[in-house]
């Protein structure tokens, strides 16, 4: 599997995000980590946080999650049409303003940063595109044939 990309197109609401998360975990288990360990969990969590963000803030009616793998890791590209999303503001602001110590919200982007090896954000053709890259060898797993 060198060049194959799987694209999941979905409606960004919380319920569907959970389904896409389950599908992504299924794909990872099938392709890279049959026993569904830490790599799968963390990749799925990073994707969930990013998708929740789209569900909550973008107002988009459709979003796309593209899953691709090379020899060393997995690339996730999450694209959603809409106005440019200000990632720096989101990183600084807790999601829940009523929670002054930031205990309940605001983990999203910080979490993604902890969980993946590279994170890129671009706004192109009217779409917010967040690219996440996570390496296999981080968690000591190697890719199969």
């Amino acid at each position: 599997m060198t060049d194959r990309t799987i694209t999941l197109t979905f409606t960004p609401d919380f319920r569907t995000v959970d389904l896409v998360r389950a599908a992504l975990q299924g794909i990872c288990r099938e392709l890279f980590e049959p026993d569904g360990g830490a790599f799968t969990f963390e990749l799925a969590l990073a994707a969930t946080e990013a998708m929740n963000n789209v569900a909550e803030h973008s107002g988009a009616s459709v979003a796309e999650l593209e899953v691709a793998a090379d020899e060393e890791g997995v690339v996730l590209r999450l694209a959603s049409p809409g106005e440019r999303f200000d990632s720096s503001a989101a990183a600084a602001m807790p999601d829940d303003a009523s929670d002054p110590d930031g205990a309940e919200g605001g983990y999203g982007l910080a979490l993604i940063q902890e969980l993946v090896d590279r994170l890129e954000f671009v706004y192109e053709n009217g779409r917010n595109v967040l690219t996440l890259y996570k390496r296999f060898n981080n968690e000591g797993i190697t890719k199969e044939g």
Partner: peptide
């Protein structure tokens, strides 16, 4: 075909859910 399969998968998942 992939797109159709993907759509079917999502529909199945949604129905199950």
């Amino acid at each position: 075909q992939l797109r159709m399969k993907n759509r079917q998968l999502m529909e199945d998942l949604a129905r199950k859910n």
